[in-house]
C-alpha cells in the first residue's frame, strides 16, 4: 500500500493490519521515551490547505514519534499563491525529496489527485466532503478497544452526514465489517439515497436506542446560513444528545465525537463528561493509529 487515500480503497484485511499495528504503537506512547527511531532520516510534510489544529497536531506528533523530520506547509485557502495549481505545489514539494505527504484539502478527490501524481506516500488528512480515513481508523480502533470487535455492532451516526468526510470514511469502514449503520439527523443533512446496509432515521431516540455506538458529528456553524437547519438551538433541541438519552440508550452504549465538539449543539456536557463518552480516548488513539498508517505505507519504486 503506497497511500492511504480513503477507506474505500482498502480491504478489511488491511484495516485489521493497521489496527493491530496501532496497538503496538499505543504501547510506545505509554513509555517514558515516546519516540522510536523507526523512520529516522525520512521526511514528512504536512500539507494543509484548510486550517486544522487538531488533525495537524496529531499527525505531527505521530511523525515525530517515528523520528521523521517534519515540515509543515499550511496554506489557508485565501493565501494560496494566486495561479499556482495543486499540481505545481506538489511538484515543488517533490523537489524537497519528501517521503510522506499528509494532505488536507477542501476539494473531494484532492488526496487521490496528489497520490496519483507523486512517488511519495500520501496520507489523506481530509479531502473536501469525501474522506478522512485516519479518523475512521482511530474510531474503529477505539471501538475495538472498548467493545472487543466491530462485527455484530449497531452503530448510529448522528448529524450532518452529507457534508461529513468522517461519516463517509466510517460508512466505508464499518461496511467492510458485519455492522448495522443508521444515519440520524434532519432530512436536509442526510443523503436521500443510501447503500443498502444503512438505514435512515429523522428521530434521534428511534435512531440511537438500539445502538452499541453513537457517533456524533460536528455541526458546522455556517450550515444555518445555507438554510440546512433553522437554528443551532433547534438542532440541539431535536437532535442534540442530552442527558435524557441515558434513560433509553443501551446500558453499554458508548458515545464518540471526532472533535472539536460544540457543547450545547451536538452534545450536552452531561453526556460529554460521562463515562459513556470515549471522546478523549479517541484523541490518544489518533496518534497511535496515524503512526501505524505511516509505518505501514510503502513507497513506490521509481
Amino acid at each position: 500500500m503506497k497511500d492511504l487515500v480513503g477507506i474505500k480503497e482498502i480491504s478489511r484485511q488491511e484495516i485489521e493490519e493497521i489496527l493491530n499495528t496501532a496497538r503496538a504503537f499505543k504501547e510506545v506512547l505509554t513509555r517514558d521515551i515516546k519516540k522510536v527511531p523507526t523512520l529516522r532520516g525520512k521526511t514528512a510534510i504536512n500539507l494543509f490547505f484548510e486550517p486544522s489544529t487538531r488533525t495537524r497536531t496529531s499527525f505531527e506528533l505521530a511523525e515525530k514519534r517515528l523520528s521523521l523530520d517534519v515540515l509543515n506547509f499550511s496554506v489557508s485557502t485565501s493565501s494560496v499563491v494566486k495561479g499556482e495549481t495543486l499540481y505545481d505545489t506538489l511538484k515543488t514539494i517533490e523537489s524537497y525529496n519528501v517521503d510522506y505527504i499528509v494532505i488536507r484539502h477542501s476539494a473531494s478527490g484532492a488526496a487521490k489527485f496528489v497520490a496519483d501524481n507523486t512517488p511519495a506516500c500520501v496520507i489523506n488528512a481530509g479531502d473536501g466532503t469525501n474522506e478522512h480515513p485516519t479518523q475512521a481508523l482511530l474510531d474503529a480502533f477505539s471501538i475495538v478497544e472498548v467493545k472487543g470487535k466491530l462485527d455484530g455492532l449497531k452503530i448510529a451516526i448522528v448529524g450532518d452526514i452529507i457534508h461529513s468526510r468522517v461519516a463517509r470514511s466510517n460508512l466505508y469502514l464499518l461496511s467492510k465489517f458485519d455492522t448495522e449503520i443508521t444515519f440520524v439527523g434532519p432530512p436536509t443533512l442526510l443523503p436521500s439515497d443510501v447503500p443498502s446496509n444503512v438505514s435512515i432515521s429523522y428521530d434521534l431516540k428511534k435512531g440511537i436506542k438500539d445502538a452499541d455506538v453513537v457517533m456524533l458529528l460536528r455541526i458546522q456553524l455556517e450550515r444555518q446560513k445555507g438554510a440546512f437547519i433553522p437554528s443551532l438551538k433547534e438542532y440541539f433541541h431535536v437532535w442534540g444528545l442530552k442527558g435524557d438519552a441515558f434513560s433509553y440508550l443501551k446500558k453499554d452504549a458508548i458515545v464518540m465525537h471526532p472533535g472539536p465538539m460544540n457543547r450545547g449543539v451536538e452534545i450536552s456536557s452531561e453526556i460529554a463528561d460521562s463515562p459513556r463518552s470515549i471522546i478523549l480516548r479517541q484523541v490518544t488513539n489518533g496518534i497511535a493509529t496515524r503512526m501505524a498508517v505511516i509505518y505501514l505505507l510503502t513507497r513506490r519504486e521509481v
Binding site: 493490519e17 499495528t21 496497538r23 503496538a24 504501547e27 510506545v28 527511531p37 523507526t38 523512520l39 510503502t298
Partner: peptide
Amino acid sequence: SFYRDDINIKGKKKEIKPT
C-alpha cells in the same frame, strides 16, 4: 521492529506485537 536498521520504506512490513 521499531528499532531495526533495515526498515525499508519500500518493503512490506511484518506484523508487530505490542511490547
